[in-house]
Simulated scan of single mutants.
Amino acid sequence: MRTVQDELKKWKKNNKPRKNKARGRPRKRKSEHLSEREIKDLMGYYEPVFRRGKGGALRQR
């Protein structure tokens, strides 16, 4: 009867991680510079906000 440790050893032997060979210099990622207004726009800061009130939904700001 096999133990869990034996099964794990067998699995590790059959499923070795593949090693990717590095090619040349690693590329630098271009950082994205956003203005404060662009960040707020992405977050939905300038979208209308509605709340329930008497007579339907009202815009709140």
Rank of each mutant, 00 (worst) to 15 (best):
M43H: 12
R27G: 02
G44S: 09
R37D: 14
P17I: 07
D6H: 13
D6G: 11
E32K: 14
E38G: 04
K13G: 09
A57K: 08
R52A: 02
G44T: 10
K19G: 08
E36P: 01
S35R: 12
A22G: 15
G53A: 06
K40V: 00
N15E: 12
R52V: 04
S35Y: 13
E47V: 01
P48G: 01
M1E: 07
P17H: 06
K10A: 14
Q60W: 10
G56E: 00
Y46P: 06
F50G: 08
V49W: 00
G44I: 09
R37K: 14
T3K: 11
R52M: 02
Y46T: 09
L42S: 11
Q5R: 03
Q60P: 00
N20V: 11
R37I: 13
R37F: 10
N15G: 12
R27W: 05
K10M: 05
D41Y: 12
G44V: 11
K10W: 05
A57H: 05
K28F: 02
R23Y: 02
R51P: 01
R52N: 03
I39M: 14
K30Q: 14
E36S: 12
R27E: 09
H33F: 12
P17M: 08
R18Q: 13
K21F: 02
S35K: 15
D6K: 13
M1A: 09
R18E: 14
Y46K: 09
K16S: 06
G53S: 09
H33L: 13
K30R: 14
R51K: 04
K16M: 07
A22V: 14
E7S: 07
G55V: 01
W11P: 02
E38R: 09
R29L: 01
K13I: 02
Y45T: 07
K40R: 15
N14W: 03
R61C: 04
H33D: 13
R2I: 01
K10D: 15
K28T: 05
R25T: 14
E36V: 08
S31E: 13
V4L: 10
T3I: 10
Q60T: 01
L58M: 00
G53M: 00
V4C: 05
R27D: 05
G53W: 01
R27Y: 07
K19T: 15
K12C: 14
E7R: 07
W11R: 13
M1I: 04
H33M: 12
S35Q: 09
K10F: 04
E7N: 04
R18M: 11
